[in-house]
Amino acid sequence: MAVRTPHFPDLLFNSAARLRRWEGALMGLLADHGYRELHPSLVLREPPPEGALRFFDGDELVALRWDFTVALAGLLTRTFPAPPDRVAYAGAVFRRPVQPWEAVERFEVGCERIQPEGEPAAEADVELARLLMAVPGLLGLKSAILHLGNAALVRRPLEAEGLFGELADAVVAALSRRAPHRVREALDGHPSAARLTTHAEALLSEFDGPGTLGALAASPYAALLEEERSHMDRALQALLPILPPNLELRVDLADVAGLGFYTGPTLRLWAPGAQQELAAGGRYDRLFPGLGRPWQAAGFCVRLSRLLDLAATRPDLFEEPR
């Protein structure tokens, strides 16, 4: 449910300058790696979705761009018979806030790596992780933490158990709270209760570096998830040797945020002491097939509005601007 008193913060001198500088630095990074900018219209062509900022233009109800990935998907499927392989975006999205601290207008920079269905995806996933690893340094963050997860670690066991709808939502909500006891409560009496509770306990038992992957061995679905474990292991082997100073890599097996959207590896960027993640992304291979295109995709979005808030409230987390 949207909050009743949404707020519309203005950016004054320092924040406005910082936004301009950060947008430039991040788009420069993406351009250097072959990502070409697309700018989907601020006014949506599609029917206004729930959660978007809507208004009447004369007699017609219209909505502002509320999510870059969705707006880009519309643009790409309308415009290109074959997918451009790397795209980037920068600008604002407008959303009715769910939490009281969320602004209506949110500034973002992001990118997407798009391939025809069936192409090997592992290299694209590592490429995106490497790009995201460069973001804290570009923004002047003194230290940061990159969380690696995989939506399939929860999605596949739920599908294997034939668990969909409200019951699956309850399990995901319990995992989001990191509460295995809630998984047990939600599945009370269901044949999969013991297996999924043990799985939840395994996912939540460790939250650390590469060794965390070993926790999957205790899951009843360890064999089912062998491909995901091995994919994450290979990604870690590729990323650890090039980890920049002041960036920590953590494996978060219980990352279920956006589980309805993500289908594979997920990435989340945090700064120590930040109350919200500063960037997020992952693989979402079902988006384009749902729009009639046999393409697979992954990407991430840097949430500049949250970073601007963090720079205002916790300047100690950032290097002095040069």
Partner: peptide, 18 residues
């Protein structure tokens, strides 16, 4: 009674909170 944690603190500073 349940033990609850701030999502941000737990995920961004696990070394302090856990």
């Amino acid at each position: 009674a349940r033990l609850v944690a701030a999502r941000g603190a737990y995920l961004s500073e696990p070394g302090r909170i856990r």
